[in-house]
Simulated scan of single mutants.
Amino acid sequence: MDSTLYQVSAQSAPADPRMPRLYALVVSAGTPATLAHKIRAGLLLVAALLLASGLIFWVAANWQAQSHWFKLGLIEGALALSVLAACLWPRLRLAALFCATLVLGGLLAYVGQTYQTGADAWQLFAAWAALALVWVALAASDLLWCVWVLIVAAAIVFWTGKLDLWQVLVADRDSFAQLMLRLVLWLALALVPLLVYCVPALRVRGGMGWWSQRLALGGALAAWSAIATVQLFDEATRQTVAAFTLSGTLVAASLLLSLFSRFRDFICTCLATVAANVLVLSLIARWIFEWQETEALLAFAVVVMVFLGVSVKALISAQHYLHAQQGNTQEVL
Rank of each mutant, 00 (worst) to 15 (best):
D172R: 11
D16A: 02
A129R: 04
E76M: 03
D2A: 05
W145T: 11
A95Y: 00
A301D: 12
V306H: 13
R262Y: 15
R173H: 04
A48T: 01
I151M: 07
M180V: 07
A24G: 14
Q123L: 06
F70S: 12
G112M: 13
L143Q: 14
A190K: 06
A85L: 11
S311E: 08
V27H: 15
V152H: 05
A177P: 03
L179P: 12
L308A: 15
G105K: 04
L308H: 09
L279K: 04
Q66W: 05
D120H: 08
V196D: 05
T240Y: 13
E76S: 11
L49H: 03
V184K: 09
A296F: 14
Y115L: 12
L333V: 00
L107G: 06
L44Y: 00
L72N: 09
G30Y: 02
Q326W: 00
D234M: 05
D142W: 05
R18K: 03
L163S: 14
I75H: 07
N62D: 13
L104Q: 05
V149H: 01
V111A: 15
S212F: 10
D2P: 05
C268D: 11
D234T: 01
A60W: 09
A47Y: 00
L50G: 05
V170S: 04
S9V: 07
L195Y: 10
A220V: 04
V103H: 02
R238G: 06
D2G: 01
W287I: 08
D120Y: 07
K71G: 05
